[in-house]
Design a protein around this nucleic acid. Sequence first.
DNA 1: CTTGTAGCTGGAGCGCACTCCAGGTCAACC
DNA 2: GGTTGACCTGGAGTGCGCTCCAGCTACAAG
Lengths: 140, 140
Amino acid sequence: MRSSYKTQGMDTSQYTPGEVAARFGLSLDTLRYYEKEGLLTEVERTPSGHRRYRPSDVELLDLVRCLRDTDMPIARLREFAELVRDGDHTVQSRLELLADHDARLTERIAQLRERQQAIRHKIDYYRGVLAARSGEEDPR
Amino acid sequence: MRSSYKTQGMDTSQYTPGEVAARFGLSLDTLRYYEKEGLLTEVERTPSGHRRYRPSDVELLDLVRCLRDTDMPIARLREFAELVRDGDHTVQSRLELLADHDARLTERIAQLRERQQAIRHKIDYYRGVLAARSGEEDPR
DNA sequence: CTTGTAGCTGGAGCGCACTCCAGGTCAACC
DNA sequence: GGTTGACCTGGAGTGCGCTCCAGCTACAAG
């Protein structure tokens, strides 16, 4: 819970590492790791060197997590973050990158559903075995 | 392509490692790895020590691949394979294991779809940016 | 008999995405 | 001034799922 307000000027909504980590369910190590890997655009620091995340950082992190949750590899996320860093003229490229990921995701979901069907057939088969077995009961 | 037929008795439908690997798109190393990890019930050998996979092996491998493709960890697959090895009285447990996996899978698919929605919103946002930009054209 | 292709073993190595750690600093409160 | 708790750094370590390799054997074709 943000409690401290800095010496001068009300804090313009920045978040401590602890807050951000909690919000996304990440460890501090992971947060730092993402930064080190270039998935976050340069995070602000307090004079003493502690990180302060601004809303734009949090927003990017939100997207990064979304993409990670859908199995985009770190390397590809880095590419994306670089495009973001490079400014407005990269919007087209970002769009392509995301559209490509979206397509992969569609494919992946379809594959998972197919496999799930197969698994359910197996489950049904086992149910059948159990049913047949309880049908014969003890043969006395 | 099975061409060789063994010295005596037509081969009762066994497959060489190469055949099986090709069929499932696995490497020989992966195939051996699965066996070493206990995901396959004891595979037959020729007198000289070469593996010969029987239809039942192939069938189990098919299920194993299906489960791996849906991200079941090796350790869990081993549990499953052990149940298979332990015989018919484990059908109930196998059923539970598969049903559990099925539930996870449903959840995972739902999560992927949610994330995909978020990604699509971002894509739409970028499309909007590009559209607006081409709308203003060069301001002459 | 030589060559070629496929397979065998045990063990090392790899890429990925974290995760942990030692040894420090900073800021606030009692 | 001492303690506490959050944060800092660089670098090592981990777990998973393969993947590679050296050095060997098997066996069918030419």
